[in-house]
Each structure stands twice: as structure tokens, then as C-alpha cells.
């Protein structure tokens, strides 16, 4: 899915209409108003001069970005351009990598996320994450969803309701309502990924980060997740890293294009090239590198 046919990469609406294997893309195109954000993003998450080091290696440098609330922002770019690194800064999952250092500002609601007194647990409770490979816990479907509310000590009147709502929210309820006590490993890959999304929204986060959530899935499962993302964006702020440019074009409101440039020592450091409305990026990119990438001549 990573290779884009050049004629598809014009404006997103036509991508949906012309190149879509599924009906859903046309539908997405029909949601025109929803998909063209007005003005600047409101900056619910803000990156200013972000730099990330892994030990001595500068992985990402000089990223300035504003993310809009209740929008889908896609981060695209070739492998090794640092887009996943940037994503993992946004809920401090990079803390788990030994030797990772983050410099610059990462603000959430204007609050410095790496400032003193900030609790990473609180950050991750508010900013959830869905991973590349579906990673359900080796527990029942019910316990997977209930895990987040339980560990974060969320006050709930009835856990059954929380689980049901989260599964509804992830468009999974009808498929699993009769086997909630069964192991999550019995689900298909796409269902597992939606379970992971249900698990994330069960803790009522404000932001959901998705790290190539469909790269391990088949096209039908991918379509369902894309559909779901558009739905979720009514309630949540979504930031998605994807290798699949069509996907970015289909679902996102804004797109950021990253690329990696090698310095004189051959070390490749990721940089933000262009960040704009998705329609602009795919229709009329300002930077030549962006155009080269989306038309398939590079990367």
C-alpha cells in the first residue's frame, strides 16, 4: 500500500472518488465540510523547536508544529524520517527508550509536557496511543477494555457500561458482545486493532496517537479503521503516523511531511518539511520535496 500511483495523488477528494477500492472513500469525500479545516490549528498540542536524541544520535531536529483539537493530523514521510519519534514524544513514550533525550517545547493545553512536576502517568492517561501491531493483552476482551479504567482508578458507576460504550465507540460491540469473556487473541487482526482503540478510549483520553495502525492489516480491516478514525475525530484529537499516503489523504484534515537529511557525517536527522491542510499538501504542495514524495518520485 505504500506505493502511490501518481495520478491518484492529486486532490484528496478525487483520490477517494477515483482510486478507491471501497465505497467508503467516496463517502469520505462527501464529508467535504468536515475535512477542510478553517484557519490555523488551535495548538492543543504544540511543538516548538523539538529535538530528540538517542544517545549522541540526533534523530529529529527543529520541529515546530501546532496540532488542532478534534482534527486528524497525519504525519507522513519516508522510513527513518523521525515521524514515529515525534509521535512518541507526544505522550512521553520516548521516556521508555534508554538514552532518549527530548529538547525543546512539547505543550499540551499550553502546559509544558516535560516540565517539572508533570506526571507521565497523567500525560498518558490523557493522550492515548494505538500501536503498529495490534497488541491486545493476553486476557479476555472485557478485561482488555476494562484494564485502563481499572489501573487509572477511574471512578465508574458500572464497568460493564464503560466497556460497552468503549466497544461501541470502536465499532466493535456488535461483533464481540456475545464473547466478552473470551480471549482477545481469538479475534482477527482488524478486530484486535479496534479492540486496542476501544481499550484506549475507555480511559476517556483527549488525544489518540496512532502509530501506523493499519500497516499490519488487510484492506478491508484498514477501511473499517479509517472509517472509525473519521468518526472518532468528532470527539477526539487524532494524530496518526502512516506510510500510506492514500490513507493520509483519505482521512486527515492536516498533513505534515517529514524527511531525513544526512549531515556531513552521514547521520540522518528527521526534519519537518511542510505542514498544511491535507488538500493543499496533496493538491498543491509548496515544497518540491513534498511534491516529489507524494507523486512517488522519491522515498
Amino acid at each position: 500500500m505504500t506505493n502511490v500511483e501518481p495520478d491518484l495523488a492529486t486532490v484528496p477528494e478525487t483520490v477517494g472518488a477515483a482510486g478507491a477500492p471501497h465505497q467508503i472513500h467516496v463517502e469520505l469525500g462527501d464529508r467535504g465540510n468536515h475535512r477542510v479545516p478553517a484557519g490555523e490549528p488551535d495548538g492543543v498540542i504544540e511543538l516548538a523547536n523539538l529535538e530528540v536524541f538517542y544517545d549522541k544520535f540526533l534523530a529529529v531536529s527543529g520541529v515546530d508544529m501546532l496540532f488542532g483539537s478534534k482534527e486528524i493530523t497525519a504525519l507522513i514521510g519516508p522510513s527513518g524520517c523521525g515521524k514515529s519519534t515525534v509521535l512518541r514524544c507526544l505522550n512521553r513514550m520516548n521516556d521508555l527508550v534508554p538514552g532518549a533525550h527530548v529538547f525543546g517545547d512539547v505543550r499540551f493545553h499550553g502546559v509544558d509536557m516535560y516540565g517539572p512536576g508533570v506526571d507521565v502517568i497523567e500525560v498518558r492517561r490523557r493522550i492515548g496511543m494505538v500501536f503498529q501491531k495490534p497488541n491486545p493483552f493476553p486476557k479476555s476482551i472485557y478485561d482488555n477494555v476494562a484494564y485502563g479504567p481499572r489501573v487509572t482508578g477511574m471512578k465508574t458507576d458500572n464497568m460493564d457500561d464503560v466497556v460497552e460504550q468503549a466497544l461501541h465507540g470502536a465499532a466493535l460491540w456488535d461483533e464481540v458482545k456475545d464473547k466478552l469473556k473470551q480471549s482477545a487473541f481469538g479475534l482477527s487482526g482488524g478486530q484486535q486493532q479496534r479492540l486496542c482503540i476501544a481499550r484506549t478510549i475507555a480511559t476517556s483520553p483527549e488525544v489518540i496517537l496512532m502509530d501506523e495502525p493499519c500497516s499490519a492489516l488487510d484492506p478491508i480491516a484498514t477501511a473499517k479503521i479509517e472509517d472509525l478514525m473519521v468518526d472518532l475525530a468528532k470527539t477526539y484529537t487524532i494524530i496518526i503516523v502512516t506510510h500510506n499516503m492514500q490513507q493520509a489523504a483519505r482521512v486527515s484534515h492536516r498533513t505534515a511531511f517529514f524527511t531525513a537529511a544526512a549531515d556531513e557525517h552521514g547521520q540522518r536527522t528527521g526534519r519537518l518539511v511542510e505542514f498544511d491542510n491535507t488538500g493543499k499538501i496533496f493538491g498543491n504542495p509548496a515544497d518540491q520535496r513534498t511534491e516529489a514524495y507524494i507523486t512517488g518520485r522519491f522515498g
Binding site: R124, R125, G128, N135, Y147, G148, V151, R199, T200
Partner: peptide, 17 residues
């Protein structure tokens, strides 16, 4: 697998949880 730990931590679970 690393993914199990990541999945749990990303939900706001503590290291010990």
C-alpha cells in the same frame, strides 16, 4: 513482548501495575 508493556503504559498504568 515489549508490545504488552507499551500497551499497558500507554493506557496510563504505572510501572508496577
Amino acid at each position: 513482548p515489549r508490545e504488552i508493556r507499551d500497551g499497558s503504559l500507554a493506557l496510563g498504568a504505572t510501572q508496577w501495575q
